[in-house]
């Protein structure tokens, strides 16, 4: 059997192809794919990590999940959080972005300002906000007192805690959403707006009749991106409230963290992580499906 020139060349290419992708495959295989599969397996076990004991418990972890008020609360909170972030941060981002569209002076300056929170570390920013929220010495309560309004408990109150995290996250993500929308808006030809102006359409009509329909793909992206990011929220909760008070601001990832690293229930935490994985996957599938149908 003699190799033809073609197959030899092809085999050489194959060699290089595998060589070039192997670092990524090896690292991902070891540190991403393997732990992901392991999580799935562990969710059916009771894992005692120090003693290295693994005992099969079947679906017990999942059954316990259904009765775990803390976890149910965490799911509820995460869901509420995601709704707020998607709708408020997304919508505000769109409104602010549409103001940029007409080539305005200082546009670059504003953009730069709005983007600062996004590039700052969530942890450091949350520490600063923790100070702003402090019921006794924080700026927010001082401002309320200045204008004669009743002060609030902010992060120290179970009624305000989740909203404190939402407000922080809106502040943090607004710049990103705005920049994405600005990029989307730039793809709308000016001609359409000009035509509408001639037809006598006001800014609000233009916004709802032209802007929104023209950037549906961008809106869709922002919704998906913010939803997935919201499901994974952790840093700001950890720093601002640690999920409290009274679990008022606990979220799914914090539950995973607490169950695994505070209560040593690694199997149970894996089951929770599995639920998170399924949620993220569902959203991704929906995204894929819709973007196929809409041909975005």
């Amino acid at each position: 059997m003699q190799d033809t020139f073609l197959t030899r060349a092809r085999k050489e290419r194959w060699f290089y192809a595998y060589l070039f992708i192997s670092p990524v495959l090896i690292f991902f295989g070891l540190f991403r794919v393997y732990p992901a599969l392991q999580t799935l397996v562990f969710s059916f076990f009771k894992v005692e990590i120090v003693a290295r004991r693994y005992s099969w418990v079947g679906l017990k972890n999942f059954a316990l999940l259904l009765q775990d008020d803390s976890f149910i609360r965490a799911i509820k909170n995460t869901f509420i959080y995601a709704l707020y972030i998607v709708f408020i941060s997304g919508f505000l981002g769109l409104v602010l972005a549409s103001m940029f569209n007409s080539k305005m002076k200082l546009g670059a300056f504003f953009k730069a300002i709005y983007f600062i929170p996004y590039i700052t570390s969530t942890v450091a920013a949350a520490v600063v906000w923790g100070y702003l929220y402090d019921p006794k010495f924080g700026l927010f309560n001082m401002l309320l007192r200045l204008v004669g309004l009743p002060t609030r408990g902010w992060t120290a109150s179970s009624r305000d805690a989740l909203m404190c995290i939402v407000i922080f996250s809106i502040w943090k993500s607004l710049g990103y959403n705005m920049v994405i929308f600005i990029a989307g808006l730039q793809n709308i030809p000016d001609m359409i707006y000009e035509a509408a102006t001639i037809d006598g359409a006001g800014p609000v009509t233009k916004f709802f009749r032209i802007t929104i329909p023209m950037i549906v793909p961008t809106i869709f992206f922002v919704i998906i991106y913010n939803t997935i990011l919201s499901l994974k929220v952790f840093d700001q909760v950890f720093v601002l409230t640690a999920g409290g008070p009274a679990e008022a601001s606990t979220v799914v990832v914090l539950q995973i963290y607490n169950q695994a690293f505070l209560n040593y229930r690694f199997g149970y935490a894996s089951a929770e992580a599995f639920v998170l994985f399924v949620s993220v996957m569902l959203i991704t599938v929906v995204q894929y499906w819709i973007s196929r149908r809409m041909e975005i």
Partner: peptide, 8 residues
Amino acid sequence: PIQVTSVS
């Protein structure tokens, strides 16, 4: 995400 796999 790493949030899912961190335990394993």
